[in-house]
């Protein structure tokens, strides 16, 4: 028997063994499980549908109050770690759940992202602790990612994005670069630190961007189904 590179060969053999031992899920069965899961998820995703008239009215009041300017003053000005902050987040979540997909929802997501940026600016001034700051940055990242989404933006939606970017540019420097980086990561039109499209004109998008950051969002994201298992790297 010929000798070969033991470590490399072992790794290849084990990869094949593991992949062969992993029973595939047929497309039909995958769809069947999906239907089971989504029947629950769809039900939960729109809780207002199942509410009584009274509860639905209360939900609408909450939403209206949130959209028109916020729950209460105390909640509206609250920061992460404050007692009223949960009310603020709850109102936002309720609103997000009932807003229809599309322009309104995207507008609201950009609005929330702007709020998170404001909160971060105020927290910086107040000297908030690192843990709270990290969580707030993560919230900003999540909201900007959701706001940009995967679908192309209309001209009006691009205007929201531009407003958010301008808003971020007005934040104090200790956080501005990081916020801009989060925006660049979320924005599928940003390539190599340079924005594409009208929505980003005039923005200082290069600051904080890595020169070898991932390419354009136009390219389809790699999917395990199309690329196959991706764990074939060497140990």
């Amino acid at each position: 028997m010929a000798r070969f590179d033991a470590e490399t060969h072992e790794w290849d053999v084990v990869a094949q063994v593991v992949l062969r031992s992993a029973a595939p899920l047929s497309i039909d069965r995958k769809r069947a499980i999906r239907a089971r899961v989504m029947s629950h998820v769809d039900h939960d995703a729109l809780p207002v549908r199942g509410l009584t008239v009274f509860r639905r009215a209360m939900a609408m009041i909450t939403i209206t109050a949130t959209v028109l300017g916020g729950t209460s003053y105390a909640a509206a000005v609250s920061l992460p770690g404050d007692p009223f902050y949960g009310i603020k987040r709850f109102s936002e979540n309720v609103t997000l759940q009932v807003l229809p997909d599309g322009d309104m929802q995207r507008h609201f997501l950009f609005t929330i992202a702007m709020r998170r940026a404001d909160e971060l600016a105020r927290m910086t001034n107040d000297g908030a602790d690192d843990e709270l700051m990290l969580r707030a940055f993560e919230q900003f990242r999540v909201m900007t990612s959701a706001a940009y989404g995967e679908d192309a933006m209309s001209a009006e939606e691009s205007a929201y994005a531009t407003r958010l970017r301008e808003h971020v540019e007005s934040t104090p420097q200790p956080i501005r670069t990081e916020l801009q980086e989060a925006l660049d990561n979320a924005d599928p039109t940003v390539s190599n630190g340079s924005p594409a499209g009208n929505s980003m004109q005039g923005s200082d998008v290069n600051s904080g961007s890595s020169p070898d950051s991932p390419g354009t969002g136009d390219a389809p994201a790699a999917s395990p189904e199309t690329t196959g298992p991706s764990g074939m790297s060497r140990p």
């Binding site: 999540v142 909201m143 990612s145 959701a146 995967e150 994201a221």
Partner: peptide, 20 residues
């Protein structure tokens, strides 16, 4: 990999926001 991760991040963010 970075694109795939970004793609997943966006889906997760939407799912957190209640997007079934």
């Amino acid at each position: 990999t970075a694109l795939a991760e970004r793609h997943i991040d966006r889906l997760v963010a939407k799912a957190i926001a209640g997007d079934a």
